[in-house]
């Protein structure tokens, strides 16, 4: 596998506060790498260090096999960045903003024209070309922010929480766009604190907490780290303490909780668990409205590794 980005022992301190602590990881060609971590875990700082915007006390960073420096213009040409904070000109329209930033990469007029159109189509801003950023809703503004960062068709794209404060429709649009970019051959680093996004989008995930990598791997690999392997949820009103005790005694059950008409059973293994529960409910003539089984979430993994929830 070709490494597009190599980060070795990256350490960054603000004044006295350590924001990143000895981070090492690689980004592989063609993947979407998720950077998952709560607020303040160091996601943005890591990206800004990789991009040579920030000084750091220790570490080596290579992009496309070359050391990344502020004047690595050949590397910068191939990189696109979507910052966490919207970075567009208030005084320029949607089209002008994209054309401006694209124009700083692409000299040829016709190519640029096409690229700008492509970017507008990708994020679905066709009807808003003449709008000023102020006239856009939060979600549309985020889409513009993305278009500005990727219009020059970069091979490596960093997206720093591009969906913060965005409605579900805009979010889906954005996630679809990112998948399209990958399909076109881009390598993507995606930071977020929404685990759902990571689960549907990313090939590989790095979980960050307090500036340290606490786990990394594919979604499946990470979920193996959680101490539970399956969770079954039953919506029922007819349960008493006796039943609950008996359920806890069923095979492989790790924990059973019953609250507000919802029964949650956690398992350490995946072995006919759903069948066992249904059998039990049937034989005790307990009626239920819904029953479903889930795999553990990344939140469970995070909980397991840090003792706290990913989002509080």
């Amino acid at each position: 596998m070709e490494n597009i980005v190599e980060v070795k022992n990256l350490t960054k301190e603000y004044k006295k506060k350590k924001a990143i602590d000895d981070l090492s990881f690689d980004v592989y060609k063609g993947e979407i790498l998720g950077f998952l971590g709560p607020n303040g875990s160091g996601k943005s700082t890591t990206i800004n260090c990789i991009l040579a915007l920030l000084n750091f006390s220790k570490g080596k960073i290579k992009i496309f096999g070359k050391e990344m420096k502020p004047n690595s213009y050949d590397l910068k040409k191939k990189i696109g960045v979507v910052f966490q904070d919207v970075a567009v000109f208030e005084e320029l329209t949607v089209f002008e903003n994209i054309d401006y930033f694209c124009g700083l990469y692409i000299d040829d007029k016709n190519t640029r024209k096409k690229y700008v159109e492509d970017a507008i189509n990708l994020v679905g801003l066709q009807e808003f070309k003449k709008y000023y950023p102020k006239q856009l809703s939060g979600g549309l503004l985020r889409r513009l922010n993305i278009a500005c960062g990727i219009s020059h068709k970069p091979q490596l794209i960093f997206l720093d929480e591009p969906t913060v404060a965005v409605d579900p429709q805009s979010r889906n649009n954005i996630l679809d766009g990112i998948k399209k970019l990958r399909a076109e051959g881009a390598t993507i680093v995606y930071t977020t604190h929404y685990m759902e996004e990571v689960e549907i989008l990313c090939d590989r995930v790095i979980i960050l907490d307090k500036g340290k990598i606490i786990a990394s791997g594919t979604n499946d690999e990470l979920k193996d780290l959680a101490n539970i392997k399956e969770r079954i949820t039953v919506e029922t009103k007819d349960l008493d303490n006796n039943h609950l005790n008996e359920i806890t005694q069923l095979p492989e059950v790790f924990e059973a909780l019953y609250e507000d008409g919802i029964l949650k059973i956690s398992y350490k293994n995946e072995k006919n668990n759903l069948e066992n529960v249904i059998d039990y409910l049937k034989s005790n003539q307990i009626k239920y409205r819904k029953i479903y089984s889930e795999r553990p979430t990344l939140n469970d993994v995070f909980l397991e590794l840090t003792g706290k929830e990913l989002r509080d």
């Binding site: 915007l53 004047n71 213009y73 910068k76 040409k77 970075a87 567009v88 930033f101 700083l104 960062g149």
Partner: peptide
């Protein structure tokens, strides 16, 4: 300038010399 404005960060990352 990257340390002053958000657009500054963006412009700092373009392949145009400072």
């Amino acid at each position: 300038l990257a340390n002053m404005t958000n657009v500054g960060k963006r412009l700092s990352l373009t392949p145009v010399s400072k």
